[in-house]
């Protein structure tokens, strides 16, 4: 666990650093992806395997693909990028007629400087985020001594553990039957371990069922909203001439 945590610690920080320093948007997205995978490792080290798997599936799987899709869809070119195709951050208006293919480096041409793919740090942003970091670290340092180590997970005495089952920690209040060697079955309380999928599902459906339903409604609304917002004829309102022409050609 310790090794996994420190490995994920380094990977996550490197990914975040890559994300905020890379000029090229796709490289920045790659850094974000690395940070997500690293945080999945942190979740694993914190005994939350279900969260770790959801993190990989939702963030690293679906969200990253969505970002990549829209990055390909919109234009990331700029003219303050010192000749780096695909860099972001200018207010240049993209014109297909003026779009030039990325320059290929000739053999005898010198390599671009090593740091040319990185964005220059913005002083005010550095100051503000560092000040925030100092505040947060001050709070963390002042936490009471109970935060110096994670406590032991609880265990229940006298519970029946089937072969290959994790140590039981929490009583769910449900019962299950266990086959005895002589063919009869015995009713025993059903226990779950910390961070098990079963434990998380008990929390969702016994602890917070209303929140779960509301979130499903929210996602449904977001689905409809995304379809509505990205529809093509939104652009053909009067006044948007270029968009209207584009519509005629399409």
């Amino acid at each position: 666990m310790e090794v996994l945590f420190w490995l994920s610690f380094v990977v996550t920080l490197l990914g975040a650093a890559m994300m905020i320093t890379q000029k090229h948007a796709v490289y920045a997205l790659l850094g974000l992806l690395i940070a997500f995978v690293g945080s999945a490792g942190v979740f694993l080290a914190l005994d939350a395997p279900f969260i770790a798997v959801s993190q990989i599936l939702i963030y690293a799987g679906a969200l990253a693909v969505m970002f990549l899709f829209v990055l390909m869809f919109t234009d990331t070119r700029t003219d303050e990028d010192q000749g780096l195709p695909g860099a972001v951050g200018s207010r240049a208006v993209w014109d297909p007629a003026q779009a030039r293919p990325p320059k290929k480096r000739k053999k005898d041409e010198p390599r671009p400087p090593l740091l040319s793919g990185l964005v220059m740090p913005k002083p005010m942003a550095v100051v503000v985020s560092l000040a925030l970091l100092v505040c947060m670290v001050a709070v963390i340092v002042k936490l009471p001594a109970s935060y110096n180590s994670f406590g032991e997970l609880p265990s229940v005495d006298g519970a029946v553990i089937a072969a290959g089952e994790a140590a039981p920690n929490y009583d769910t209040g449900l019962r299950r039957s266990v086959k005895q060697p002589d063919g009869s079955s015995l009713e025993v309380p059903r226990h779950v371990g910390y961070g098990d999928t079963a434990a998380v599902s008990h929390t969702i459906f016994e602890g917070f069922p209303l929140a779960f339903e509301v979130v499903s409604l929210l996602i449904f609304a977001a689905l409809l909203g995304a379809v509505l917002l990205a529809r093509r004829h939104l652009t053909s309102v009067p006044g948007a001439q270029e968009a209207g022409k584009e519509q005629e050609h399409a």
């Binding site: 905020i20 948007a25 920045a28 970002f67 829209v70 990055l71 919109t74 990331t76 972001v88 951050g89 200018s90 207010r91 964005v119 740090p121 913005k122 005010m124 942003a125 503000v128 985020s129």
Partner: peptide, 8 residues
């Protein structure tokens, strides 16, 4: 704070 691109 530092990026101007909406996706970033």
């Amino acid at each position: 704070l530092s990026r101007k691109h909406l996706i970033m």
